[in-house]
């Protein structure tokens, strides 16, 4: 299968500090990849680079074979990269339905938004998504009134509404209950059937639930890559990240 994402020799430095250092990464289409790493390993910077929020100092990022260099965020997003932020970011003064509609909209230009009505296809997509994320009953109250977990789900729903080819999900279960975490894991696994997904996560239990292939980042470069089991038993990983062997077991 073709590689959907290809990153070569990527370096990002902020005033001399190298947040990412000569990083090479590639990912196949349809893969669900989990990236773990201790704080400050460069996980969020990694997402910032792919989505165009930060420009690389060196190296290239290729998405579906196209170099993303100096493309603005919205172009990359339209090209098929969707991103969920660490803290849930939804439009608090809009309802979940409106939130989803904005993401679902296919003509994201000024005049398209002014003169085009949302098509019945889009309405159906939104309706289906509301069911998937379990917010049908709260579809028409302000998103600011939702609980933390519901906001997380709404944001994942917004990502899917964008119908991206690659989903970047930054800590989707931070602050969720165990049950919500399980459900989120199931949701991501079912999404992985039709999307390529990168998940960044701290919660090892959760990683174990969803992971097929894990990449460990450390000090801006890739430390090792493999199945959860391989990674868990890698002595370097145990040293820098998992720390205690009993936690990793």
């Amino acid at each position: 299968m073709a590689n959907i994402l290809e990153i070569e020799n990527l370096t990002v430095s902020f005033d001399g500090f190298k947040a990412l250092n000569g990083l090479n990464f590639s990912m196949e289409e349809g893969e669900l990849r989990v990236i773990i790493g201790p704080n400050g390993a460069g996980k969020t910077t990694f997402l910032d680079i792919i989505t165009g929020k930060v420009q690389p100092t060196e190296g290239t990022v290729r998405f579906k074979g196209k170099n993303l260099k100096s493309l603005p965020e919205h172009r990359i997003a339209r090209f098929g990269v969707g991103r969920k932020f660490q803290t849930p970011r939804v439009y608090l003064n809009l309802t979940p339905r409106e939130n989803l509609e904005l993401s679902c909209n296919r003509t994201k230009t000024v005049f398209g938004s002014l003169f085009r009505k949302s098509s019945s296809g889009e309405k159906l997509t939104v309706k289906g998504l509301l069911e998937t994320i379990g917010l049908v009953g709260k579809a028409d109250i302000k998103a600011g009134l939702l609980s933390h977990g519901e906001k997380q789900w709404l944001e994942i729903g917004m990502l899917v509404a964008q119908s991206p080819d690659l989903l970047l999900v930054d800590e989707p279960v931070a602050g969720l209950t165990d049950e919500e975490t399980m459900l989120t894991g199931d949701l991501l696994i079912s999404l992985a059937q039709s999307h390529s997904i990168i998940v960044i996560e701290h919660d090892m239990e959760f990683v174990r639930q969803i992971a097929r292939k894990v990449t460990v980042l450390h000090q801006g470069s890739i430390l090792c890559e493999g199945s959860m089991e391989e990674v868990q038993n890698d002595p370097r990983v145990i040293e820098v990240y998992l720390g205690h062997t009993d936690e990793a077991a």
């Binding site: 939804v90 003064n93 904005l102 909209n105 938004s113």
Partner: peptide
């Protein structure tokens, strides 16, 4: 939709960029 977009800009412009 245009009005909702304005509110979205007010609430979280960065999010909007990443929505395309």
């Amino acid at each position: 939709r245009f009005g909702r977009l304005l509110i979205a800009i007010r609430d979280d412009e960065t999010r909007l960029r990443f929505s395309g």
